[in-house]
Amino acid sequence: MSFQERRAIVSLISSILITAAYSAYMIQRYPEASPYSIEVFRFWGAFFLILIPVSIVAKIVIYIVFYIVNTIATREEEPSITDERDKLIELKATTRSLYVFMFGFLLAMGSLVVDMQPSVMFIILIGSGIASEMVSDISQFYFYRRGV
């Protein structure tokens, strides 16, 4: 298995773990108020705003650990350049990922149209965010393994 394939798997697992752990922690702080109250909107605003830096920092730490463990285990250093194949694979993976998020976004807006609670819209947005990341990582793994 190449370095890029291992990196895609690590990224996939870390995305799932970070979002799951963060959601489990934050859900305990969900305000006991009316679904349409300002507290609920403030909660979801904070949820998204804090998730971004938490996710970035956690991924940086996980990648550093991965690079160290990978170098020790395989004696293979990470590729120092990103070549045309890497860029093409990233582009294809990002395209698929955006399609998934776009579908999730439309679904989230649809939930408002059919009079669902605002929390449902936010949960769909989070779900589509993690789904799009997963599709990106799985696509990268697939293209590196099966060819592009």
Binding site: F3, P79, I81, D83, R85, D86, R146, G147, V148
Partner: peptide, 17 residues
């Protein structure tokens, strides 16, 4: 100016440069 993995993929016919 590419990675070794790209040369591997080209040789195997998995990637057209």
């Amino acid at each position: 100016g590419v990675t070794r993995q790209t040369i591997v993929a080209i040789e195997k016919g998995d990637y057209s440069p």
